[in-house]
Simulated assay, not measured.
Amino acid sequence: MRTRDDCIDIITQVYGADYVPIKSACFCPASKIWELYWLAADHPDLLDRALVLERNALTGRHSRFDAVESGASWDELVRTADRFPSSNTTVGLGRSFARNQWARVNDVVDEQFRVRRGPSDRARFRLRAATLRKSDNALDGRGASHLPVALAA
């Protein structure tokens, strides 16, 4: 049986360190904010898909979001509020936040909720990811030799 470190070593040897993935962050409710910035910088298409998934889950037919309890629809709150009111209803794919709202408040998305892709935006996202990243993530436990080049620098 291979360990995580074995897999990292194999990927690094065969494809290079840039291809060693971090843990799945686009859909995982335990994602950290730095991982979302990293996705915005390096995989904006995946973050776009995660935002659409969240929106569909929270506004669709089987949504448990209560607009009466929250004072507005989920979509209205994402577009206009700085935060969700206290609620015992899940507000998004994050354990305690909606990624669509996080992306809007932090200027990660445009008016159509598409991840910004300009060079200065991506540089800003990379810097924010590097600033927020702490040593409690599996990626950090691999050591600098296993970090993707964009994060190791």
Rank of each mutant, 00 (worst) to 15 (best):
T3F: 11
T3R: 11
I8C: 02
I10S: 06
I10A: 09
Q13L: 07
Q13S: 08
Q13Y: 00
V14Q: 04
V14I: 08
Y15S: 00
A17G: 12
A17L: 11
V20F: 09
P21D: 11
P21Q: 13
I22S: 10
K23I: 10
K23W: 11
K23M: 13
S24F: 12
S24L: 12
C26E: 14
F27G: 06
C28W: 05
P29W: 05
A30R: 05
S31G: 04
K32L: 09
K32A: 04
I33N: 08
W34M: 08
W34E: 14
L36M: 15
Y37T: 03
W38S: 06
A40V: 07
A40F: 10
A41T: 11
A41V: 11
A41K: 06
D42K: 14
P44E: 03
P44H: 01
D45R: 13
L46M: 04
L46C: 01
D48Q: 01
A50Y: 07
V52T: 13
R55E: 04
A57T: 15
G60Q: 08
H62M: 06
H62V: 02
S63T: 14
S63R: 10
R64N: 04
R64G: 01
A67C: 00
V68Y: 01
E69F: 06
S70C: 15
G71H: 06
A72T: 07
S73T: 15
W74P: 02
D75R: 13
E76S: 07
L77E: 04
V78P: 11
V78N: 09
R79W: 02
A81R: 08
D82W: 12
D82K: 14
R83E: 12
S86K: 14
S86W: 15
N88W: 14
N88L: 10
N88A: 13
V91S: 01
V91T: 10
G92C: 05
R95Y: 15
R95S: 15
S96M: 10
S96Q: 12
S96D: 10
F97A: 14
A98K: 07
R99Y: 14
N100Q: 15
N100G: 15
W102Y: 14
W102C: 04
W102P: 05
V105N: 14
N106H: 14
D107V: 11
D107K: 12
V108F: 06
V109C: 07
E111L: 13
Q112C: 06
F113M: 15
F113D: 12
F113T: 10
R114Y: 05
R114D: 04
R116A: 02
R116S: 00
R116E: 01
R117N: 02
G118Q: 08
P119D: 01
S120G: 02
S120A: 04
S120L: 00
S120V: 02
D121P: 04
A123T: 05
A123Q: 03
F125V: 03
F125L: 06
R128K: 13
A129R: 09
A129N: 07
T131Y: 08
L132Q: 08
K134L: 09
S135I: 05
N137R: 05
A138I: 06
A138K: 08
G141H: 04
G143N: 01
S145A: 10
S145G: 06
S145Y: 02
S145H: 01
H146N: 02
H146V: 00
L147I: 06
V149K: 10
A150W: 12
L151T: 05
